[in-house]
């Protein structure tokens, strides 16, 4: 997949657990796990907005475009 999700890294930086984020954002843990593990096929603007608001970050901090063969900016 070309778009990778680095939610776990942002969560680690903020010292927040997935369960806590789930409660704050109002998205189930199952859905956040789908997002975290990169299995998600799409993300709603409303979900992205809520996550960014709670984690005090930009969408670009969570989502990265990975060109084929090139590594992500870690």
């Amino acid at each position: 997949m070309s778009i990778s999700v680095k939610l776990d890294r942002v969560l680690l930086d903020r010292g927040m657990s997935l369960t806590e984020l789930s409660e704050r954002v109002g998205v189930t843990i199952a859905n956040l796990s789908i997002l975290k593990t990169g299995k998600a096929k799409a993300i709603r603007f409303s979900t992205l907005e809520a996550i960014c608001k709670e984690l005090d970050c930009q969408p670009g901090d969570i989502l990265f475009f990975e060109d084929d063969g090139k590594p992500s900016p870690d």
């Binding site: 998205v27 997002l35 299995k39 096929k41 709603r44």
Partner: peptide
Amino acid sequence: KEEQDLTV
């Protein structure tokens, strides 16, 4: 449906 299920 799969796409819907995997939309967060």
